[in-house]
Amino acid sequence: MAAYPSKVRYDAENLIRATVAFNRKTEPELYKRMGEVENKARYLKRLVKEDIERGKSA
């Protein structure tokens, strides 16, 4: 499905996409936890917000 030009422009101006890979052999605890989480985006956003609140954001 092709995106409308206005949607492409909005996304370019307002969104950032991040992809994270978890290796089941080298990071089994992370891999397992992400498999248990129903809404991965919400979970990761909450973790980032908590990090910001603690003042440890890079």
Rank of each mutant, 00 (worst) to 15 (best):
M1R: 02
M1Y: 13
A2E: 15
A3L: 06
A3D: 13
A3T: 13
A3H: 08
A3F: 13
A3W: 03
Y4M: 15
P5E: 03
P5H: 01
P5R: 05
S6T: 14
S6C: 11
S6K: 05
S6A: 06
S6L: 11
S6M: 10
K7G: 11
K7T: 06
K7P: 02
V8N: 03
R9Y: 06
R9A: 09
Y10N: 11
Y10D: 15
Y10I: 15
Y10A: 09
D11R: 10
D11S: 10
D11P: 04
D11L: 12
A12W: 04
N14M: 00
L15I: 07
L15C: 10
L15R: 15
I16E: 01
I16C: 08
R17A: 10
R17Y: 08
R17P: 01
A18K: 13
T19M: 14
T19A: 11
T19N: 08
V20A: 07
V20P: 08
V20M: 03
A21R: 12
A21M: 07
A21Q: 11
F22V: 01
F22Y: 00
R24M: 09
R24G: 02
R24C: 08
K25M: 12
K25Q: 12
K25R: 12
K25G: 09
T26D: 02
T26W: 07
E27D: 08
E27I: 05
E27Y: 00
P28G: 01
P28E: 08
P28L: 03
E29W: 14
E29V: 08
E29A: 06
E29P: 02
L30W: 00
L30T: 06
L30C: 08
K32F: 07
K32H: 05
K32R: 00
K32G: 02
R33Q: 15
R33N: 02
R33F: 02
M34Q: 00
M34V: 14
M34D: 05
M34K: 00
G35P: 02
G35D: 04
E36I: 04
E36A: 09
E38I: 01
E38D: 02
N39A: 05
N39G: 07
N39R: 03
N39T: 03
N39I: 07
K40I: 06
K40R: 06
A41F: 15
R42A: 09
R42D: 12
Y43Q: 08
Y43G: 07
L44V: 01
L44P: 02
L44G: 00
L44E: 04
K45W: 15
K45C: 14
K45S: 06
R46V: 09
R46T: 10
L47Q: 08
L47R: 09
L47V: 10
V48S: 02
K49N: 15
K49H: 10
K49C: 12
K49R: 13
E50H: 14
E50G: 03
E50K: 09
D51W: 14
I52P: 00
I52D: 14
E53I: 00
E53V: 05
E53R: 02
R54W: 00
R54I: 06
R54S: 04
R54V: 01
G55Q: 01
A58D: 11
